[in-house]
Design a binder for these strands. Structure first.
Lengths: 219, 219
DNA sequence: GCTTGCATGACACAACTTTGACACATCTAT
DNA sequence: ATAGATGTGTCAAAGTTGTGTCATGCAAGC
């Protein structure tokens, strides 16, 4: 789960952003002036910072210079029409800006775009307690990293992209192994067993007799 | 010198952009429809593509899907008020958008921001305790300068521009060495080892078996 | 219900591939 | 000339994968 810091002196706007991002699955913290923002950045790590320019104590530009070396992406919040601010922000190294007032959809799209850009929000697939990130090719189960081999990984992706669909063994084989399916070998079965074992998914990966396998929700 | 492709059916706008960017020191090529754009992309490499959405032959979205896998950054050109277009563009992986009509200053700021973001224009990259300045080609670790060779430096940049992304060895090789990947040689591996050793990054630079390498945040 | 014919689970193992470690020859720039 | 940089080969170690064997389970026909 990604953590986002919102530095914005207008509590109403800050909370609006917070609520919307939290419904999207991000964890948010608010700071109402530049000083408080700097303190929070010092204390804990954030994946993204939304930064208002007009701030009491320390202004947005100053804070930006402080943040930049840490490599944390920053999106500026700027008032309508302040073209100069936007340009200055981008020149200083901000990753994007959002003009207030903004539409919620745009806010989310930009946040996702920036996180994706930083490789922190790769294309993710989730099922049960397992989450897989296709870009970094990492798998976590209940937050714990799981080591999978290439074939296991590709097989899992294929299954998770087709939840609750009975996949014919030929189709799985062709997708994961590339070539065409060769009849009687224990190859596919072995890999299914290995996946089941590693994830403890004896009940989720069901075998469909004479057909293939299915990744199943309930019981 | 950076090369920029402008895909825009309105010749007046295309030329306006071209002239302004060229005075900033970029080399520009124009394409007036999607088909022509695709052909040019096929032929030569661009550092950035400015892409109109409304295009004859092939529209901007389609072209974007074609460009994305190549890793070239894209800025969308969109008409005022088309909020849906902007969001769709960002979701599809565009790096930014510019609303027509635009101010020249903003155009340039955004172009520079995107190029900087991709490390193609001078910018600092940071990861863990290491900071690198692409322009001066200097690296410091915990504030202490580190001497890297050319290949080591380029390799490090490639890794740091793709934090948490599993990079295929072919891709790394082609990016850092230029030519196409030649099968079984220990070249890439050797340089990875040397980097690991110099930075003490045995745990940050993870090998992804049978895939390549990944620069990893945690664990 | 029982038997038969297959399909799949479980498991072990050997062949194979990939990477780490290291040494060394070549190359380049001063 | 010399020192550093770079590419490549070798060997060992580690990881991956396909396959065979045997046991178990499923479905259908008798």
């Amino acid at each position: 789960m990604q953590k986002i810091l919102i530095v914005e002196d207008d509590a109403a706007i800050a909370n609006l952003i917070k609520i919307n991002l939290e419904t999207e699955g991000y964890r948010c913290t608010c700071a109402f002036d530049g000083k408080a923002g700097a303190d929070l950045i010092e204390e804990e790590h954030f994946d993204l910072i939304l930064l208002d320019i007009m701030l009491p104590e320390i202004d947005g530009y100053e804070l930006l210079e402080y943040i930049k070396p840490m490599g944390t992406p920053v999106i500026f919040l700027t008032a309508r029409g302040n073209v100069d601010d936007r340009i200055k922000g981008l020149k200083l190294g901000a990753d994007d800006y959002i003009v207030k007032p903004f539409q919620v959809g745009e806010l989310i799209a930009r946040v996702e775009a920036v996180l994706r850009r930083y490789g922190k929000a790769g294309q993710k697939l989730a099922f049960a307690d397992v989450e897989i990130d296709v870009v970094s090719r990492t798998v976590t189960q209940a937050g714990v990293p799981v080591e999978l081999t290439i074939k296991e990984f590709d097989l899992l992706v294929e299954l998770m992209q087709n939840k609750n669909v009975a996949l014919y063994r030929e189709r799985i084989y062709e997708k994961v192994w590339g070539g065409s399916f060769m009849g009687d070998t224990r190859t596919l079965d072995s890999h299914i067993q290995r996946l089941r074992k590693k994830l403890g998914w004896e009940n989720y990966i069901r075998t469909v007799f004479r057909i293939g396998y299915r990744l199943e929700d309930d019981t």
